[in-house]
Design a protein around this nucleic acid. Structure first.
Lengths: 251, 251
DNA sequence: CGGACTCTTGATTGCAGTCAACTAAAGTGG
DNA sequence: CCACTTTAGTTGACTGCAATCAAGAGTCCG
């Protein structure tokens, strides 16, 4: 098992150079990890109100359930991700947080993170950049839900997940573990599980991806991105240079 | 014409008590306003890259256009709103910014805002709260696009706009100016303009709202919220107490 | 008084939802 | 170790919400 802080450190150092002191300070901030069982909520109860949750390992999601029972996933939390903006203590949770896999998290106080940022400018920059990235991901989801077809949405989210996992070193080549059910993707993409399946079949038929036993592989990244209308222009989603290097890889 | 800073000050002081010194510091930060014509982009060109745009008066929106020409509005900017998280300087714009009405904005440097926050803790709290609110609005839009029907989406966004305008004092009773075309709402709600119109007719037929000559009025707020599956529970969207007081108003 | 834009409404089409059946894989307990 | 249950994935048939196409009505403005 890798060091618990690795994913977080890798993510933060994407756009910013962190010194050894910075890294040590970040590690020092993290409390001992808490383990959460899959399919378990970790919002509201259990965690001190307003705690900032940092995902050390595993997948989680923020979601909301409407009165008619429909669920919508608002965002995925992958290793190294924060549950909310790093400086804020909300009065109450505005949405629920669920572990999608066995999860390991640590809980930070926004106050502690803010004071850490204060004494380490590079860390502050990294945190802001991370926040901006999360916002871009939400924007991309809005665009998908509003204006992309089912298959385009799936292609888009799979590419996004690939880039996010690649950023923390959780990919091998263009393959990675995708430990979620199609029904979960449906709740994320605003589709039915059946339609997610059909869309996946479509992507397979087009020879763009494979997916077996929770193992996912992108066969032709360039074409997948073009199909999804994923714009290289909104480069904030990707670590600098990733788009170029990957497009080179896929040809 | 009101003081240009009023909307911004009102918005920031929603959840936080700002002293006179705080208020003066905020006003001092604002540069002379710049006027922008309707239907004009103000992203990238014209504004220094990375400037933080504060809407003083008028309506604007963030949007993205896909390669197939479809446009999706990602968020509305109403008077007092920031174009982006207050502490960040993005490498490049990840989406476009357009004035929807005659617009008056001022441009701030994130650095200046951060240092202001540093010396005024109450302002820092207010800024973080504002940021959290904007994130909640994006979440709500994701839920709408993913899991609400056309008419529910419309009801939801209209209620949201009402609360946001009420927060800065731009409503009279439950009526307010809605200076956008139905086609704009369509791009925000992921619908066609025709469907927005049909949905609006539906809400009118249900006697929930009226809309004539860009003047909009909510007739029965309680029912509108229930219809939209708008949860009082996610109270971060609303200034404390608004939900109770308005529900009292509407009965 | 015309022209452009927005709103409104009807007719038709199509993408995705729902319902349902079947397969495959993974536990579970006797 | 093997019936039995449960869960996830796959596919077909049908339905329905919203898109598209098209035409007419109302406004604003030159």
């Amino acid at each position: 098992m890798r060091d618990y802080h690795e994913f977080f450190l890798r993510k933060l150092s994407l756009g910013v150079d962190l010194s050894l002191q910075d890294r040590a300070a970040i590690v020092g901030l993290c409390t001992p990890p808490r383990q959460v069982a899959p399919r378990t909520d970790l919002a509201a109860e259990g965690t001190p109100r307003g705690a900032l949750i940092l995902v050390l390992d595993g997948w989680a999601c923020r979601y909301r359930v409407l009165t008619n029972g429909n669920r919508q996933i608002i965002g995925l939390l992958l290793p190294g991700d924060f549950s909310q903006p790093f400086g804020i203590t909300p009065q109450r949770w505005s949405d629920s947080l669920m572990a999608m896999t066995p999860l390991s998290v640590c809980e930070l106080s926004p106050r502690a993170v803010r004071s850490l940022a204060l004494s380490h400018p590079a860390i502050e920059d990294a945190l802001w950049l991370d926040l901006y990235l999360e916002r871009d991901l939400a924007s991309e989801l809005i665009v998908s839900l509003g204006r992309r077809t089912a298959t385009e949405r799936l292609a888009c989210i799979l590419a996004e997940i690939y880039f996010r996992l690649a950023a923390v070193g959780m990919t091998e080549g263009q393959a990675f573990d995708l430990p979620v059910r199609q029904a979960d993707l449906a709740d994320l993409l605003g589709l039915s599980a059946v339609q997610v399946n059909r869309s996946l079949m479509d992507l397979r038929r087009r020879q763009l991806v494979t997916w077996q036993n929770r193992r996912f592989e992108i066969l032709r990244l360039r074409e997948l991105l073009a199909f999804a209308q994923f714009e290289p222009a909104n480069g904030n989603l990707l670590p600098a240079g990733v788009f170029d290097s990957t497009s080179a890889t896929s040809r």
